[in-house]
């Protein structure tokens, strides 16, 4: 059995364990368990890269996104003072997102395409990584806007929205850098920044427009806080689903 299929199931188990640890057992065990899950997840990514380098592994985003999200959670956990309830709830949601994303990657794999020669470009790799970091930021934004509805005090909700906005803004930064990298790659490789053979670029644009909408909703204050939080959560979720749609294949049961 190859390393990749084994490691993804282990990563799934460890992310689920981290969620249980955070909720029930002991918060102090979160970092080691999550770290173990991250290591295993990274092994799976490394395996896919080893099968493709210097070319780009195809449709790697659903496997890479949980790893990047785990990194962000771990970095936040390690630099921050003991987390408050809000932060813990956000981490729980982030762990849930990691688990669901990786599970979907296992059940709907699209790992059968061979890498193509033209993907041997620094801009192609930058597009993948920047886009994944952006997506991970969006997921944290969704988590914060979801926690908004769990918290009851106005001050806490205000903090949740500020954090959601902050993560959404970072997500837009990296998402935009990803799109620019993709355009550079496309221009160098095909002569035009948008190649209409592959419609996946349109889903990236859809996610970008949705998040630009979210940011402008915040700046315009046209909607109230609650409505904006709902839009952050639902609109963000739609953006994530759209951005990953092209990377999933048909249902493949593991049995």
């Amino acid at each position: 059995m190859t390393i990749a299929p084994v490691s993804l199931y282990w990563a799934l188990a460890l992310y689920a364990a981290a969620l249980v640890v955070l909720r029930i057992v002991s918060r102090r065990l979160l970092l080691p368990v999550l770290g173990a899950g991250l290591v295993v997840n990274c092994l799976a990514v490394a395996y896919r890269y080893s099968q493709a380098w210097p070319m780009l592994p195809m449709h790697l985003a659903p496997v890479l996104t949980p790893a990047v999200l785990a990194c962000l959670v771990m970095v936040r956990s390690s630099v921050q003072a003991p987390p408050d309830t809000r932060e813990r709830q956000v981490r729980q949601l982030a762990l849930l997102f990691m688990f669901v994303c990786l599970l979907a990657a296992q059940l709907f794999p699209k790992d059968f395409y061979l890498s193509f020669l033209r993907s041997d470009s620094i801009f192609a790799h930058a597009m993948l990584f920047a886009g994944t970091v952006g997506r991970a930021c969006f997921l944290l934004s969704i988590a914060w806007s979801t926690v908004f509805f769990i918290r009851s005090s106005a001050e806490e909700r205000s903090v949740c929205m500020r954090r959601a906005l902050s993560w959404a803004a970072w997500g837009v930064v990296f998402w935009t850098l990803s799109m620019f990298s993709g355009e550079m790659w496309s221009y160098l490789g095909w002569g035009t920044p948008v190649v209409w053979d592959d419609p996946a670029i349109l889903l990236m644009m859809a996610a970008w427009f949705l998040y630009i909408t979210l940011l402008h909703l915040h700046f315009s204050r046209a909607w109230g806080l609650r409505a904006r939080a709902l839009f952050f959560a639902m609109g963000g979720f739609a953006a994530i689903v759209l951005s990953l749609l092209a990377d999933f294949g048909p249902f493949r049961p593991p049995w």
Binding site: K110, D111, F112, Y113, L114, G249, P250, R252
Partner: peptide, 19 residues
């Protein structure tokens, strides 16, 4: 191979063919 898209005689992974 309904979900596979591309050129005629497209190359895919052995694992997918066997699956």
């Amino acid at each position: 191979f309904e979900d596979v898209f591309g050129t005629s005689c497209i190359e895919i992974s052995v694992e997918r063919f066997l699956y």
